[in-house]
Write a protein that binds this DNA or RNA. Structure first.
Lengths: 218, 218
DNA sequence: ACAAAAGTGTTTAGTCTACACCCATGC
DNA sequence: GCATGGGTGTAGACTAAACACTTTTGT
């Protein structure tokens, strides 16, 4: 008897100075009408990483996104039909790449919507707990992973970069100290381009210097 | 159709200045005669945390040990009979508590034995990969978790404490700097007791000051 | 001219690193 | 008395934190 299980995706993005998670409104028993993480059964011969890619693609229209396993959840009572184990994954996407693509893809869900991590609706199953754990893990990774860059557009301002940190840490940071620190890290490349369309002084744009980042972490 | 899956335990201890992992010699198809992590199927109505406790108890004779989920492994080809998902857990135990208790408990295993993490035999399934991941994770947790204290006896010398760090980090540390650092942390309580049975100057014993440790991490 | 956010340095306190010798004990 | 690990301090480099004003741009 082989394993029968699901995967669920916690898909993050950064928009309007907030971290947001993609939720879908279920259109099927159980928890019909409730909001839930995008997720589904893994096929018999499908690697679970592929299942996650498939599901996140169906929900965001994006391939090749940053994915990482979070944990398995297998509470005997987590599913009303009996124990169904789920493996949760975290995905990070850029809002620009995704903003007009999010839509319900199958009849299983009515709609998909981005919710700020501080204002989530009631959630199906144990999805609240899954999200909670994912936030904590992301927080820890912040300063020694590419996570911030997967959430931001390719070219970003230092203020945006700082906002990602602030949103996850849940506290405000000193602008000068923050800039000094990232300057020391040395893996941000200063561009000769500036923000457009703002009614105040346009900020310089930066991007990640991948080569320097790699070196720093061997 | 409910989930059918296993749990596997990476059980660490610290002995002879080395980190060791408990392995069992399998006495059943598949991988009969191979060394493997202790693990087994989770019962239909059994929480997986309970299954891990059961399996680690059967193999070490200890209850209430430090347990933490590592990750789920679900490669389609990881098991010769077809995909069986496993959830790996990490457990840390004190060698003193366990040294005479380890034995084969069921007919499924011929024997159990501690192997230093640097000298592991060939392993069944994807267990090498599981161990690899667990070492990396433990390394990261080292300095902000109770992990070192779960591996050491309740009363330990500073040299033993340092050896735990060295074994996991895979490098030697400067004695003076190490002692200065842990002094600053301030959660080691100096005892008025000393090592016995050594043929050189007896080292002072220390133990964890749990109250101070808690405070440090809120 | 005003509103909004960009950008920019210095001082002080704390932490990290490198480094070598004497001490106590058991045999 | 010798072998073995136990135990100790200091100087220099680096990192972290606190803190406020001027500049640029669009309306």
């Amino acid at each position: 008897m082989l394993s029968h299980f699901t995967v669920d995706c916690v898909i993050y993005t950064f928009h309007e100075a907030q971290l947001k998670i993609l939720l879908t409104e279920r259109n099927e028993y159980p928890y019909k009408g409730w909001w839930a993480l995008p997720g589904f059964y893994v096929e018999k011969d499908e690697e679970m990483e592929d299942a996650v890619k498939r599901i996140s693609y169906e929900n965001t229209g994006l391939k090749d996104i940053y994915l990482e396993q979070l944990a398995a959840f297998a509470g005997v009572k987590r599913h009303p039909e009996g124990r169904i184990l789920t493996v949760a994954y975290v995905a990070l996407v850029r809002y620009d790449n995704v903003k007009n693509k999010v839509k319900p893809v199958t009849s299983y869900m009515k709609q998909a919507k981005w919710y700020p991590i501080n204002h989530l609706p009631d959630l199906a199953f144990d999805h609240r707990e899954i999200i909670q754990l994912s936030v904590e893990k992301l927080k820890k990774r912040l300063s020694y992973s590419l996570a911030p860059f997967e959430l931001l557009p390719e070219k970003f301002t230092l203020t945006q970069f700082q906002q990602v940190y602030e949103a996850l840490l849940g506290e405000t940071l000193d602008k000068r100290n923050f800039r000094k620190k990232i300057n020391n890290l040395g893996y941000l490349k200063e561009l000769d381009e500036f923000q457009t369309g703002v009614s105040y002084r346009a900020a310089r744009l930066y991007k990640l210097d991948r080569r320097k980042f790699q070196k720093l972490f061997e």
